[in-house]
Design a binder for these strands. Structure first.
Lengths: 133, 133
DNA sequence: CCTTGACCTTCCAGTGACTGGAAGGACTAT
DNA sequence: ATAGTCCTTCCAGTCACTGGAAGGTCAAGG
């Protein structure tokens, strides 16, 4: 399979696939004309990467997960640890974003949004985090 | 005030303050020795930026908000619009992260996390998004 | 007066994970 | 032969910093 078809199959843009090759996540063979040739195992890897990335794992996490996936003598504890750490990061981000949303929703709610210059949003930004929630 | 003291006051690293100057967010004066000299208005601006950034506004949003803040004839509607758009982006991210968390929490829960190689997390990543929630 | 150390300056490079575009070769269909 | 689509490589840009090198400045102590 050529890169274009793989891109459609795996749901990853050709550019991204080339980038994954550049950083050593996949190693497709080459045809005599220089075109990349993707075998089933490559396509499988790319699907694995697509799914991992969609769950928010970093590229380095993906690299490790892929290595564990291919290591028949892995310990599931190693996989679980990575997933748990990632889950913690996500929960941290969620907490941060939730706090932002609360503050912003409150501010947006308080703002008349008309032609007058008075604006509680700007007042908050200028005053600091006094009326946070 | 020199940059170091300003950094402590505004809670922004000196490097970041220099970067803000480079992209035109602040324009501190200069002493004869070449050192930046920050006046109250500069420090006020930096505090405004720190607060805006902490609410997740992009630098370009911050630039616009700062301009509105300094424009006495602004319409609060313009400010509100930016805040609302930002709120929408945050809600989008929250939805995405919440979905990731659900999937990951489920997978982590299903994984024994012991010395055996069998791992539902890897199975999910390899199989695609079948057992999402 | 000299040194030490903390501060300041500029400039360059790297981060993460792509993404866009240019320049040029290869393949397919007409 | 030609048009159009695919492929290749390489370089640059994104966002908001952050780290580090090389060197100037300042205040305190000997």
């Amino acid at each position: 399979m050529n890169i274009g078809e793989v891109a459609k199959t795996a749901g990853i843009p050709p550019k991204t696939i080339r980038y994954y090759e550049e950083i050593g996540l996949v190693r497709p063979a080459r045809d005599t004309n220089g075109y990349r040739v993707f075998r089933d195992s490559d396509i499988h890897k790319l699907a694995f990467l697509a799914r991992s990335r969609s769950l928010g794992f970093s590229i380095e996490d993906c690299r490790t997960l892929l290595a564990l996936y291919e290591d028949q003598s892995r310990a599931s504890a190693d996989v679980k640890k990575i997933a748990q750490q990632h889950l913690s990061r996500i929960e941290g981000k969620l907490a941060e974003l939730t706090s932002m949303r609360e503050t912003l929703a409150h501010l947006v709610d308080c703002c008349a949004g008309d032609g007058r210059p008075d604006c509680p949003i700007l007042s908050d930004l200028a005053a600091g985090a006094k009326t946070g929630s």
